[in-house]
Amino acid sequence: MQPAYDGSMFAAYQDVILVAPNYRTNVFGFPNSPELPQTGQNLGFLDQRFALDWVQRNIHAFGGDPTKVTIFGESAGAFSVDALLTSFPKNSTPPFRGAILESGQISYRAAPEAPSTPSWDTLAAMLNCTGTSNLTCIRAAPATTIKNIIEMQELVFNPVADNVTLVSNPAQMRLSGNIVNIPVLSGTNAQEGRVFEVGQTNVTQYVQTTFGAIPGLPEQIEAAYPIGQNGLNSDYDVISQIFTEVEFQCSDALFANATASVGIPSWRYYYNASFPDAQPYNFLGVYHSSEIPQVFGSYLLTNPILGPTVQEYALSSFMNGAWAKFAKDPVGGPGWNAIGTGGSFWLGASDQDLGVLGNQGNTNGSGVTVIQESTVDYRCDLYKPLYEAVSGVQIS
């Protein structure tokens, strides 16, 4: 296990059992082979379901209760959580009762996933597997050879909609109300995109390339992120923030509020803190995945040389406790207002129901500060046409 995901603090201080199963990824988990049936493509998702089944059958041996399982994941792990949430229909009995999604979901995407069959074909060609069965030939190749080809060719293998482990229309499924009523805690980091957009230096080119298919949208987006304001001091800052909001923040706002709109308890957080011992490079700020050592309380394991600041220690203790509080009582929530308890920004009101974890304005926080979602989501309307086109649902 990677040190950041060490569950000792949950076990020692929160009386929570943490199970961290492995699952197959890339071509080994999501092959996209035309020789496999549709229901045999998402092997990685099936691995996760087998792991949850193992927990149901065995967690009692560790002092756990199989009726009190909360699933949680970050990034692709959060995609997996959303896939599970939307593939269990309303009257089913899933092997979990709560769900936490950190920096990811699949219901609202700014662009559709590209088919991965071309990646399978490229892999087959590189392995000289051009006979009657590419599948048989590729299966016979050494795993290290396959891995090297995938990395050198930058091949991507995505899940497919099999309507068993991944539905074809998760946003529509959620809004229809035909998903199991599982309380959710979801959120994003303030500067997710900084780790993805390193080296980008031309805002105009970026927005034209990324959003040029919709006339007028690139110009609107560029105007909404003026350089020299709100901490955006360079093209890299602007591009990173655009990526943060369109790929993570605004889509999570939709996810959280859509969930609440059908009567499922939903809480949302906004992580905004950066510490020296969590910075591989000092310009990354509150980057994608930087909250993980705070959630797990594992910051001393990830960087034992630099000691934590007082704020880091206190904030990590709070977040570790909030995640555990939610796991112990998902209906009760993590300790701040649920989305939709009196309305929300996306649903036409302005109640304070976004939990800021860390810094708010000039205050370096060590707990939660509850604010209106519109305080950070004020540019999200720009991206509605993208989400509507991909999700197939109208966003009010």
Rank of each mutant, 00 (worst) to 15 (best):
A141Q: 15
I146F: 12
V156Q: 15
G216H: 10
N202I: 07
N230Q: 11
V262C: 02
L217I: 07
A224L: 06
A260W: 03
L232Y: 12
I221A: 08
A224K: 00
P280W: 05
A141M: 15
N148P: 05
D237A: 10
T201L: 11
G228D: 11
A161G: 04
P142S: 12
F275D: 00
S176F: 01
A141G: 11
M152R: 15
E247G: 12
V160A: 10
G177H: 08
Q241M: 14
G193S: 02
G187V: 07
T259P: 04
M173F: 05
D162M: 01
I149V: 10
I227A: 15
G216Q: 11
M152W: 10
L185K: 13
N181E: 15
A223Q: 13
N233K: 09
V198L: 08
V184F: 01
F275R: 08
T165A: 12
L155W: 03
E154G: 08
T145S: 15
E192Y: 04
I221T: 05
N230G: 03
A223V: 03
S186D: 15
Q191Y: 07
V238Y: 04
A161L: 02
D162T: 07
I179S: 05
A190D: 15
V207G: 04
I242A: 09
S234D: 12
C250L: 05
V246L: 10
V180N: 14
T204P: 01
A223D: 08
F211L: 08
V203H: 02
Y270L: 07
P226G: 04
S240H: 03
A278M: 13
L232M: 11
N257R: 07
L232C: 00
G199A: 15
A278Q: 15
G228S: 06
K147L: 10
N189Y: 01
A258H: 14
L232S: 09
E192H: 02
N230I: 07
A143Y: 09
V246S: 01
T188F: 10
A223N: 09
R139K: 13
A260S: 14
P159C: 04
N163Y: 03
V262M: 06
G193V: 04
L185Q: 14
I214T: 11
N181I: 05
C137S: 07
V195D: 10
V195I: 13
T244K: 02
Y281W: 10
N169V: 10
C137N: 12
I138C: 01
T165N: 10
A140T: 13
T145G: 01
N230C: 03
V207D: 11
G216A: 00
L166R: 01
N233C: 03
G187H: 04
T209A: 14
I146D: 04
Q172E: 14
E151A: 14
A171I: 00
P265N: 09
S266L: 00
D235K: 06
A190Y: 11
F243I: 13
S186M: 06
T204D: 15
S186I: 10
S168H: 05
F275S: 12
F157V: 09
L155Q: 12
A171E: 08
I182Q: 01
M152C: 09
Q241T: 12
G228N: 05
A256Q: 07
S176M: 01
L217M: 07
